[in-house]
């Protein structure tokens, strides 16, 4: 572990909460055209361990991308993406990408946790308006922040800011809830990291700072903390 860090403002792509991460003592490394929080000056293992209770991470710079239009599902299937018929379910691709089916005509692709897959980029490039296909790219990578809430206490924490029952007994792996959290509209996708319950939270990037503060406030009672990408890779066994 090194203590060398980068300045997120030296990159053109910046997370909507880079100041919050910086002020919390994040060590940044370059990734996805910007600076991501690798750790908070602790080893990945130590941070991962603390995530068993409750933790929050920012994945906003990782690839996430939407498609909309009435031929969306058929077109994605033709491109080799496995998308089922059921709405509000995330379909896991072989390379770890999640195809979150938000509506009959809308799919949100979110990268595998370390962003190795080029699927998002490849699909975004091929979905050109020149093709007469009604599957239109939607730049959710810019429109949506992407937070990850992890840990056993996550459902109890969410219960303070969200009216949907997110306990494991009611909200299973790869289920999606599109609902209101702290009165803002978000997409919640459950996709556990190994044994650790994990909830991807995506929503309006303009309110990222607002929700970040709400989450930290709600997490306090459970001793929740921030973790970096290193800990997430560790939890995912990568």
């Amino acid at each position: 572990m090194t203590s060398v860090t980068l300045n997120p403002a030296d990159f053109t792509r910046r997370s909507p909460v880079y100041r919050e991460l910086r002020d919390a003592g994040a060590r940044f490394v370059e990734s996805f055209g910007g600076a991501i929080a690798e750790d908070f000056m602790e080893s990945a293992e130590a941070e991962a361990k603390s995530a068993a209770g409750l933790a929050l991470a920012d994945l906003s710079l990782l690839p996430h991308f939407g498609f909309k239009g009435r031929e969306t599902v058929d077109w994605l299937r033709s491109q080799g993406v496995d998308v089922g018929d059921q709405d509000n379910v995330a379909y896991r691709q072989e390379d770890g990408v999640l195809a979150a089916k938000l509506a009959p005509r809308e799919v949100l692709l979110i990268a595998d946790i370390v962003g190795r897959s080029d699927l998002c980029a490849r699909l975004a490039d091929s979905a050109s308006i020149e093709e007469e296909v009604e599957a239109f790219p939607v730049p959710r990578g810019d429109g949506y922040f992407w937070f990850l809430v992890l840990g056993e206490s996550a459902p109890a924490m969410f219960a303070k800011i969200c009216g949907v029952d997110l306990r494991s007994s009611s909200f299973g792996e790869l289920e999606i809830a599109q609902t209101s959290v702290a009165r803002m509209n978000v997409v919640i996708v459950r996709c556990d990291l190994g044994e650790t319950p994990a909830y991807h939270v995506l929503g309006d990037v303009a309110s990222a700072s607002y929700l970040w503060a709400c989450l930290l406030d709600a997490m306090e009672e459970f001793d929740g903390r921030l973790i970096g990408h290193g800990a997430i890779r560790h939890l995912a066994g990568l």
């Binding site: 509000n88 949907v164 599109q178 609902t179």
Partner: peptide, 10 residues
């Protein structure tokens, strides 16, 4: 019909 049972506040 899309999201199932939800509070009317949604």
């Amino acid at each position: 019909p899309l999201n199932g049972p939800r509070n009317i506040s949604e």
